[in-house]
Every structure is written in structure tokens, then in C-alpha cells.
Computed example of a mutant assay.
Amino acid sequence: MTTLLISDLHLHPGAPEITDGFLRWLEERATGVAALYLLGDFFEAWIGDDLLDLGDADPTGNATLASRVAKALHRLADDGTAIHLMHGNRDFLLGERFASAAGASLLADPAVVELGGERVLLMHGDSLCTRDEAYMAFRAQARHPQWQQQILAMPIQDRLTLAQSLRQQSGEATSNKADDIMDVTPAEVEKVMAEHGVTTLIHGHTHRPAVHELEIDGRPARRLVLGDWRPDQGWEIVVEGGGEPELRAFSL
């Protein structure tokens, strides 16, 4: 049986080519697979599951997009595919209601799962970027339950405005940071993999697709990094039966 892993689609109304490409990919590539793992930043932003209540009344189009995607995922789940959804740094407010609408289960970050007969560590990847101290401070705040409750208690329109402001601030901050600061910290990768007793790590977040060979506790190991989706290209990791994970790019 086949397992697929993807991340960093950053779905939003301003990029309909990616949404349409993802929905085609679900029908043509994901139909019939045993499991699908979505490793964070599925959406460009998520202001709370009550977004689904807005429907066509949402002027941004995010509610319509979310409903369309959730229904497509649920059809896949109804056909027998297990769908696992991990939070990213953009959609950390995704909750059980959306997961239920999509026929998915929320997956902890990090999580150890069995793929191809091997214990594999799955992460979004942002927690590995420890040299970005400003982001790590924000991450600690944004993942705190009390902070999230305060945000979700705000009117939806205020949350939409906040999300737009945070995206703008993130873009400005990223443009001013050194390239290596926004990548993972090698020592943190080795530490996390050793703590979980694995020799394979799969993550996204950095938008730097690659397979890195390394060593953990004297054993050969590897880190597979998923790429972000763009209007003309997507990235997936495929595990066929008992085979090893394979990173692939494909045309949308």
C-alpha cells in the first residue's frame, strides 16, 4: 500500500492554480492510497474553524476555499484513505472541527509513525529553526493555549485583519534575515532524532526540498525535506509498501 506525504501548499484564494492543482492531485494521485499526511502550512492562514460558518458571505473567499478542500478530502477518506493533518506555522489554529469536516485526524508535532516498516519522525520543521530567535519566541506564544483562546474569542473580521498583518510582518522579517538563520539548526536535528530513536526525519517548512545524509548515534541517517507547492509544481514523498521514502517533484 502507498503512503503520501505533502506540506506547504499555502492554499489561499489568491492562488487558485495551486488549489485546482491540489484537487486534481487528490483525484489522480491520492485516490486509493493507504494514508495521506499533510505536514503543516496546508493553508496560508487559518483564523479559526468558525471560518467555515461564513461560506459565501466571506469576502476574502477563504471560507469557500476551505469548504471546497474539506469536502474533497472527506471524499478521499470515505474511500478508505487515512488522512493525518499536522499544524504548521501558518495554520496552527486548525482545529477538530475542520479535521472532522475533512475526514482527517490531527497529528501532533513531532510524531513518530511507521512507514515502510521503519519508525519515521514527522515534523512541520519550524521548531528546528532555533537560530531564528525572534520566530522561536513568537512560536512559543502562538502555540500557547491561552493565547490561542484569546485570539479565537475575537470577532472574525478582527482575526482576518490580524492574519493579514502577521503575514505582512512575517514577509518583512524574512527579507531581513540571513539565509542560514531561516534553515534548520543541524545540532537541533540530530538532538531531536536521537531523542526519538529514529534514523529518518521528514519535514517541510523551509521550502528547501532535498535529501540530507547524516549520522545519528553512529548510525547512517537521513533528513527528507518537502518543498512548497507553486502554480506549476508540487512536491510529495512516496512510500510504496515496505520501500524507502522517495522525494518527488511533479508538474501541476
Rank of each mutant, 00 (worst) to 15 (best):
A153I: 08
D158P: 05
L128S: 04
C129Y: 11
Q157S: 07
E133N: 01
A140T: 12
R97A: 14
A102W: 00
F98W: 03
P145T: 04
A108W: 08
W147N: 07
R143H: 07
S100N: 11
P145E: 03
R139I: 02
W147Y: 04
G125E: 04
Q146S: 10
E114A: 10
L122E: 11
A137M: 13
Y135C: 05
A99R: 01
G95H: 02
S127E: 13
D132A: 10
Q150K: 12
L128E: 05
P145W: 06
I156V: 14
D109M: 08
L121M: 15
Q146L: 14
C129A: 13
D158M: 13
A137Y: 05
Q150H: 07
R119G: 10
F98C: 00
R97I: 12
D158T: 11
R119M: 12
Q141S: 07
L160W: 04
E133P: 00
Q157C: 03
T161A: 15
M136T: 00
F138A: 04
R143D: 02
E96Y: 15
G125T: 03
A101T: 02
Q146C: 05
G125Y: 00
A142L: 12
D126Q: 04
A99Y: 00
I151H: 14
G103R: 03
R131L: 14
D132H: 04
Q149H: 09
R139W: 02
L107E: 07
L107A: 10
D126I: 01
F98S: 00
V113A: 08
L160E: 08
A101Q: 06
C129G: 14
A101S: 14
S105I: 06
D158L: 15
G116N: 09
A134V: 11
L106M: 13
H124W: 09
A108C: 13
L106H: 02
C129W: 10
A99T: 01
D132Q: 08
L122S: 10
